[in-house]
Design a protein around this nucleic acid. Structure first.
Ligand SMILES: [Mn+2]
Ligand SMILES: [Mn+2]
Ligand SMILES: [Zn+2]
Ligand SMILES: [Zn+2]
Lengths: 141, 141
DNA sequence: TCCCATAATAGACTTGTTCTAAATATATAA
DNA sequence: TTATATATTTAGAACAAGTCTATTATGGGA
């Protein structure tokens, strides 16, 4: 818990109970959760927490580079506490998002002369091992 | 116009006036438009066309692989008639989306054993040449 | 302790998209 | 051709993710 507080203080974010708990959740549940998944979980820990606080907190974390935003697939945003360079795979059957390693430096690029590239995202989609081997395509993984 | 009809018939899509006009727009305006941009343009051509028709048509086109869906940046979907392999760059200043060439085959990947990869998207963000050279960051490009 | 700035809260609001039910258009059958 | 069935369009309601607003709570410094 103390480590979490440090993490926030180091980034000049006041370590409110709400913020610490959300940070704790992100660190312990590396499933690229949606805001709603975080909100649902928080109801157990701090039943009074509002959805606005979840969004406020995530936006605060985003602004200091504590989390990254994934917009893979569209309708809802996902949040990732893992700031290292990596790609994301989304299973079209069960919806889970998985990390993979990729080194774009090797990659042949063209058409970006004079562009200032600041962020690079790689999104793959398809079927995860469980869904690939089970043609039933349950939607539970 | 006839070519457009062929394109739709070949994919077993009934070539209604609405569908042909939307296809024509996508082919002639390769700006990765949003549904609303398409709707705005259609108001000039077919003033009675409803927004639902724009969405219905785009979803029909998506289902037969005539367009691809881009969810770069989040809030609104963009549609791309260019089905060749390429990456997308979104300017954080003016919002325009640009194509670039990339060959992911060269790329060192890890952690995707037993995954069935069906779609690959590469999204870069930053500043386009015009916005890079003009620190004013106008939002018009 | 009292202040003041910051944060949390509930709910209204906005926006992009889908759904629904009715009207219209097109294809097929008699 | 007319009747009937099917597919498409339409307008607006409904929905969902996320933001905004106004109010209340919190917590550190004087
Ligand atoms: Mn990740
Ligand atoms: Mn493109
Ligand atoms: Zn799966
Ligand atoms: Zn630009």
């Amino acid at each position: 818990m103390d480590k979490l507080v440090q993490e926030l203080v180091a980034r000049k974010i006041r370590p409110s109970i709400q913020r610490v708990k959300i940070l704790e959740y992100l660190i312990n549940n590396r499933i690229h959760p949606t805001a709603d998944q975080i909100f649902q979980h928080m109801q157990k820990e701090i039943p009074t927490m509002s959805k606005a606080t979840v969004y406020n907190t995530l936006n605060t974390f985003l602004s200091v580079g504590l989390v990254r935003l994934l917009t893979i697939g569209g309708s809802e945003a996902r949040y990732d506490i893992n700031m290292t360079t990596h790609g994301h795979f989304k299973c079209e059957s069960c919806g889970t998002v998985h990390d993979f390693t990729i080194d774009l430096e090797d990659c042949e690029l063209g058409g970006l002369d004079d562009f200032t590239v600041e962020k690079r995202d790689v999104h793959f989609r398809g079927y995860c091992p469980r869904c690939s081997s089970n043609p039933g395509r349950s939607s539970k993984c």
